[in-house]
Amino acid sequence: MRKAVERVLVWQWGRRGAGPRIAVDLADGLKRLPRTDVLLCLSDRAEILRSRNAPDAVVKVATYSSVCELVGRILTALSLLKQLRRIVRDFRPDVAICAMPGPLDLLMAGVLRRAGVRIVVIVHDAHPHPGDGYPFQAALQRWLIRQADQIVTFSRHVADELTSEPDRAHCPVIALTHPPFIGGAGAMPFTHEGAPRILMFGRLLPYKGLDLLAEALPQVGRDLRCRVVGQGPDSPELRRLSALPHVSVENRWVPEDELPRLVEWADIVVLPYHEASQSGVGAMAIASGRYVVATRVGGLVEQFSDDAQAVLCVPEPSSIAKALATLLEAPPPSRPCVDNGQEWENLARDILASRNVS
């Protein structure tokens, strides 16, 4: 007997960053599966809608761009609920996947629950990192988890935290691998002219190890160029990095279309974190043929421990410097870039199969 078409709704209502990107890539992966009908739902203000990787078909939901607008959106929740009920009624999904939790997701979860739709939530962090996230994020995520039928994480580290604490999830939790974001295939590392290139990219917050990098770079003992790129508050650590020779700090938001070029500029991507759940930047770096230096914290250990292109080290300046020097002196052969589309298809298949996990 031929399998019926499975109808999958994917939603994420963030404006910028990893959330909308993951939703688009996951929807694309699901579309590659046989007999799967997919509906993607994004914020009408999602940056990715204006990028060259904009999805072909998407249902847009009016959201917010500030805390004041979020409050206003909550006060007018009735109109949003009507739209969400219409989306669910017209598409009739068998399963709905939240690609990354956000402040308004409980409204969608309530609509899906009443319609009898299975809910899968991808949880990226068991707890917000210091200085990261939005107001009441931890509480809202706990409430959303209570509505879920299945939790997916991108590291066993996060899965273990969700299943071992007092407010643990009471539905199945499965840890899968973080696929790389879609990028290009630039020149291989160290094939350019000039000094080796080191990149640190992401939110410029203290837990990312800005202080460790500032102390480590002078200890490498090699001429190199380093770019620290991302958005964050001014800090002594950033000022210290800016003062180092051949180090540039670019405190700015990186547009969606610039990401592949930025990663491909680097020979080595460094993740000197004090704590981490997993790293989407690291996944993109490896997939683009870059080398990675990462500290042995959180989910980074499982993500990179078996990868020849990555060197793990203790979260101390001397250890980070030694890891960088090791790759600069004797980099292992760089493998070809991976098939990003295939990786997201694999994730999509695993998520749909995970409903049978008890």
Rank of each mutant, 00 (worst) to 15 (best):
A308Y: 03
W265C: 12
E250Q: 13
V263Y: 11
V281E: 00
E316G: 06
A283E: 04
L213K: 09
L271H: 03
Y273A: 12
V293S: 10
S277P: 12
A243E: 03
G221I: 09
E237Y: 06
Q231M: 09
V269G: 10
E316L: 03
P317R: 10
A283I: 00
H274N: 09
V228H: 00
L312G: 04
E316A: 14
V229N: 09
L262Q: 15
P233N: 03
E250F: 04
V281G: 00
R225M: 04
E250Y: 02
Q303W: 01
R222E: 09
A287P: 12
R225Y: 05
S242C: 07
E302L: 10
A310I: 01
L312D: 05
V292M: 12
A243K: 07
S277L: 11
G282L: 00
E256T: 15
A287Q: 10
H274T: 13
D234A: 00
S277E: 13
R227T: 02
V293I: 11
V301H: 11
I268E: 13
G221A: 00
R252D: 13
R240H: 03
A283H: 11
A216E: 00
I320E: 08
D234Q: 10
M284T: 15
L259E: 00
A308H: 15
H274E: 14
S277W: 05
V229F: 00
D306A: 15
E264R: 08
H246A: 12
L244K: 08
T295L: 13
S248P: 08
E258D: 15
S277R: 07
V270C: 08
H246I: 03
A283P: 05
V301K: 13
